[in-house]
Amino acid sequence: MNIFRLSGDVCHLVAIIILFLKIWRSKSCAGISGKSQLLFALVFTTRYLDLFTAFISIYNTVMKVVFLVLAYATVSLIYFRFRKSYDSESDSFRVEFLLVPVAGLSFLENYSFTPLEILWTFSIYLESVAILPQLFMITKTGEAESITTHYLFFLGLYRTLYLANWVWRYHEEGFFDQIAVVSGVVQTIFYCDFFYLYFTRVLRGSGKMTLP
């Protein structure tokens, strides 16, 4: 464990909590892509199947359980409790265009052709595109509430810190996970455009982020 990975995991947890509390307290999921949250729940489900078979550390187990619980709780808020405020019109990204290529690629490019390994690979590839429905929804509505942009900021920060974590691990341990790194770089690139808007608009105090 290193400071980059630990702070990355904390940012990830903060992002998920920000989103959950925003929906819970405003009793609305307006502007939130339910599809992205479904994809994240699928990412955690397919990645954490080793929760009961491989014990790594208390931290690892606790964080996996927390991520799974919060992911499913957020999905249930969007699709059940506050479903009347769910804007399915704007959340129109065709997720099958993500799931099919990601599933195909996880069968082609993986470290070993075993169910657990293919599902883990699927979760890595899926995570790199899971935010796209949310980013697409923002471009479609042309705006995002500032709290939603803070959620995306912490999510992007978590990914950026993971890149630093991989540089550190390669330098210190000679550890290099090609699938995770390539997928992580692609994922982080998707946040670049958002980061630009976030720093030039939201942090300038304009409250909500409106796209040009």
């Binding site: 080793d50 390994e117 996970d177």
Partner: peptide, 10 residues
Amino acid sequence: EDDTLPKDEL
């Protein structure tokens, strides 16, 4: 071949 890596990252 099985060259899986340790899955210690979240």
